[in-house]
Each structure stands twice: as C-alpha cells, then as structure tokens.
C-alpha cells in the first residue's frame, strides 16, 4: 500500500460540472465527494444519469466545465499523467486489440504503464486470473468471460492504487460474474486498492460496495452505505431503492 495512503483521498471531486458544447442541460452538475483510499464505492444511476461522464472526467478523457478533481492527491487538470500511472480502468465497452495475443496485449500495457519485470507480472496475473493457457490466443477469439478476465489483468497490470470499473460483469453468466466479484473482493482486501464501480447490477453493488452514490440527471441525489440506503427507503434490496430514485418517489411516498 502507498506510504501516503491515509493522507489524501483516492478521489476528491469538488463541484464537478460538465456541460457539453452545444448541449442545453448539464451532463453532470455540482458533483462533490471524497472517496477514501482502500474503499470500494458504487456509482449508480439510470441511463443518462452522468456515470460515464463522471468516470471519463476522473480518467482525464473529458475536461470538466467546472469544479476540480484530484486522484491520489494529483490535480487532474495540472498533473493527470502522474495520477494515471497509478490508476487503471476496465470497461467491456472499450476493447483490447483483438488480433494480437493476450500476452502481447498485456505486454503493450506493461510498457505503457512502465511496469518493471513485465514478464513476471504478466505470468503472476495470468496465474491469478486463470489466463495462463490463454496467453498465446488472439484476444478476439476469447469468450466474454475470458475477455473480462483479460480486461481485469490489463487493469491490474500496474498494481493500481485506484481502479475504475465500468460494469465489470456485464454480459457474463451468473457463475463467471460471481467468480469476478469474489476475485475483486479478495484483490481489494489484499492490495488496499480503491475501487469505484459503475454498475447496473444492484446485487453486485450491494455485495462489493461500502458506499454508494446515487446519480440522477447529473447530480448525486442520495448516498450512503447499502445498509443505510435500504433502511432510509424502507426497502429490502438496492434495486427497489434504485427504482424509487429513478421514478422520483420520495422517501415519504414509498408504498408500504
């Protein structure tokens, strides 16, 4: 774990706002949160709630219209590459080059992240994520579950202190999805890595996340631990809480 692990938050967002040029409404408006090191947080919201825009701003892919982001103590407007070297990202919607092998893909990212002893790190990740037999296969010839494991290996190649995951178990069968969730739980416990997870799978968020940000129309409309949210809305699972928020039902309007 980093020496400054407790000194600065994994993510500090202050008044984060994004208005796309030509757009009328803000995609994200006044988003503020402080995510501690080593925590796993969930970012929930319906389509168009602003999750992807938020993640893109945290990764430096998108310049905020207002506000400030610091990841691992680095201001993303001035010093994003120092932060990016210690972060990583995985999304089923961004592919890895399909024509080159799994090992070649991982070696590319080991170089891009300047990973020392890249061969050893790749072998280590391959063993942990059950990829050893797949290393020579072209990435495009893998099943969805295998691709997810390779994407995770890519996301962990630099031993990130902050990991951003966009729907890490989308399109996986329940067994593979469960395997990935168990693996992530174990990895976070062992490495102390902070994980911000955007997902539509409420059971996954309930299981993995210690804190949840509920987004709607670009704003955080509620937040807390899954247990706090369930108690506050008087519901049995997060999916019902999600539907209450998505459909604009206030806590007092919830049917008994």
């Amino acid at each position: 774990m980093d020496r400054d692990a407790d000194a600065t938050p994994a993510i500090l967002a202050e008044g984060l706002t994004k208005r796309y040029p030509g757009g009328t409404a803000a995609a994200v408006e006044g988003l503020s949160f402080r995510m501690p090191r080593g925590a796993t947080w969930g970012l929930l919201g319906g389509n168009g709630a602003g999750k992807t825009t938020t993640i893109a701003m945290l990764l430096g892919l998108l310049v905020p219209s207002g506000g400030r982001i610091a990841c691992l103590g680095h201001d993303m407007a001035r010093d994003r590459f120092a932060a990016l070297a210690r972060m990583n990202f995985s999304s089923p919607y961004i592919a890895l080059p399909s024509r080159i092998s799994v090992a070649e893909n991982l070696r590319v990212y080991a170089h891009l992240y300047d990973v020392p002893q890249a061969g050893r790190r790749i072998a280590e990740l391959a063993a942990q994520l059950q990829l050893t037999d797949l290393l020579d296969r072209p990435a495009g010839q893998l099943s969805a579950g295998q691709k997810t494991r390779v994407a995770l290996a890519k996301a962990l190649i630099n031993r990130p202190a902050l990991l951003l995951l966009d729907e890490p178990t989308a399109s996986l069968d329940p067994d593979t999805g469960d395997w990935v969730r168990s693996w992530l739980e174990r990895y976070r416990a062992e490495s102390g890595c902070a994980i911000l997870l955007a997902s539509h799978n409420m059971a996954e968020v309930e299981r993995l996340c210690g804190h949840v940000l509920m987004m709607k129309q670009g704003r955080v409309v509620d937040q807390g631990s899954p247990a706090d949210l369930l108690a506050r809305y008087g519901r049995d699972d997060l999916e019902e809480v999600f539907l209450d928020i998505a459909r604009g039902r206030g806590r007092e309007e919830i049917p008994a």
Partner: peptide
C-alpha cells in the same frame, strides 16, 4: 478500428 483508443488515452502515454 480496434476500439482501443480509450485504453491508450487513459494510460500515462503523453
């Protein structure tokens, strides 16, 4: 074409 730019641009590659 390989839809890989997202990964490249969030890496420390300047």
């Amino acid at each position: 074409w390989s839809r890989n730019l997202g990964h490249v641009f969030v890496s420390p590659l300047r």
